[in-house]
Design a protein around this nucleic acid. Structure first.
Lengths: 149, 149
DNA sequence: TCAAATAATTGCAAAATGCAAATATTTAAG
DNA sequence: CTTAAATATTTGCATTTTGCAATTATTTGA
């Protein structure tokens, strides 16, 4: 258990680099944070501004401005919620969905390349392990439980 | 393979949150980036300013200033390299080493809590899987190979 | 011996951050 | 009902962070 953190540190940093480098799609440059926002909007069901900000653990005022940029870039749409007019619902524009899909594709291509170095059994084991880990983290009381399914 | 990215995204974001929340030690508040810098200095052998900046994929000028803050906080020391006087070698002060160890401990405590939900076999499998993953990523040509062992 | 290369720092202007306050709307209590 | 408290989002503003271009100091190689 001594160097457990170390292997996690290496892993998460590599994925961080991956995300960092994977932020250009169709001539549009996207910051790392913007990429995360697009991903999150894409994966939540009609999320409010607050929901996405929480999921990404970002200050709501900062997030509000980040959304403004994405709207200016025509990647995100903000629609008033008819049930509660304080709330704005976020969604991707056609262009935003395209960019998100493109980034997704780039990252999956990288993951596929990584997994191509393993046999089927190893690959299954690794994927099952990560799911196990995610479940365990979701149950943990110490940290980081609240957002994300 | 469809949702492979998704499980990685969840995992890395959870660890990101963990790091974010684990950045206070002995009354000293540390930013996420500062925590990564301390970790990296601690794990490299007499690294130069440039080496650490590269490992963390940070712009060298930004990094130079981050080091300046850490020196002001008395967590990092900068020593001229006798072999090449353009170079400065970074190391942790006693206090910096203490802070780094404390953060390490907090993160390991969290990891232990997570693993306590698994049996020995699962735990071994998960750890072996992550090592496998790290090796595969290190070999990959697509992305993110250069820094880090 | 001197021009090119390298390591690190600084100037500066642009971008990101987050607290406090403002706005708009909803909820709940009397 | 009416109105005060609560909630969702946005803006004002001051601070911090960022990164390109230029600078300094040193080393390397022709």
């Amino acid at each position: 258990m001594e160097n457990t953190r170390e292997i996690f540190q290496i892993m998460t940093r590599r994925f961080g680099l991956l995300n960092k480098s994977c932020c250009s799609a169709g001539g549009i440059d996207i910051s790392l944070i913007q990429s995360h926002i697009l991903y999150e909007i894409d994966h939540q069901h009609k999320p409010s501004v607050q929901k996405v900000a929480e999921a990404l653990d970002t200050d709501i005022t900062t997030f509000s401005r980040q959304i403004q940029s994405l709207i200016k870039m025509n990647l995100v749409k903000k629609t008033p919620d008819p049930d509660d007019r304080r709330v704005y619902v976020l969604s991707l524009t056609t262009e935003g969905a395209f960019v998100a899909a493109s980034i997704d594709q780039q990252i999956n291509a990288y993951l596929n390349e990584i997994f191509s170095q393993m046999n089927e059994f190893e690959k299954d084991t690794v994927i099952r392990s990560i799911k196990l880990l995610n479940d365990a983290m979701a149950k943990s009381s110490v940290c980081c439980t609240s957002p994300m399914g």
